[in-house]
């Protein structure tokens, strides 16, 4: 279970920790283009259902950390994985920042650095083996027949693995576990 502790690292931010180019790097990635337009109004945090029940998850804060270039703190942070992708903030941001897209971008980068909650590896393994994110148990398949539901089609696992290979996904999943 991902803890709710705040972003990793010392409380005091050292200037040497900041990567001034990080925000430019991020703003080239689809979904995160408008990161620099965030003027820290706090609408996202105020309207975020997760923030309401978490002591640590604050989308506005994550956006600011990215603008400051606190790359390793952000990417190694557990709170990155708490966004529920409900898109409330996306609809309400006065600056049209696609906050959930920024979070997705950060997660994709975190994964490349070796940070990925166990549940995602399980889902990914299932997709590569069966085509679906959940392995449908045999009992469910029998129940389908009893209930008169049509059989589930067989997935084209070969094609899925090919797509995983060409998108670089297989390599990410095979990389060392964290």
């Amino acid at each position: 279970m991902v803890s709710e502790r705040s972003e990793g690292g010392e409380a005091v931010i050292k200037a040497t920790e900041m990567d001034p180019k990080f925000k430019y790097e991020i703003s080239k990635i689809p979904g995160a283009e408008k990161i620099m337009l965030c003027f820290q109004c706090g609408t996202c945090t105020a309207d975020c259902p997760i923030a309401r029940f978490s002591d640590a998850y604050r989308p506005r804060r994550i956006l600011r950390m990215v603008q400051l270039g606190l790359k390793s703190r952000v990417l190694s942070s557990d709170v990155l994985w708490l966004c529920a992708a409900c898109f409330t903030c996306v609809d309400r941001c006065p600056q049209d920042v696609e906050i959930a897209g920024v979070l997705r971008t950060l997660r994709n980068l975190a994964v490349k650095e070796g940070f990925m909650p166990a549940v995602y590896r399980e889902l990914a393994t299932s997709v590569l083996e069966t085509g679906l994110a959940y392995k449908i148990p045999a009992s469910r398949l029998r129940k389908r027949v009893e209930a008169g539901l049509p059989p589930l089609p067989k997935a084209d696992v070969k094609s899925i693995n090919k797509l995983a290979e060409v998108t670089g996904f297989s390599k990410i999943i095979q990389a060392r576990r964290t």
Binding site: P30, A85, A133, P153
Partner: peptide, 21 residues
């Protein structure tokens, strides 16, 4: 006739595989 994961559960890992799926 045949389908796979819509892509959404994989989006946190890789935007590209989400698009491809």
């Amino acid at each position: 006739p045949e389908y796979n994961c819509c892509g959404l559960p994989m989006e946190p890992i890789s935007y590209d595989i989400m698009l491809a799926l």
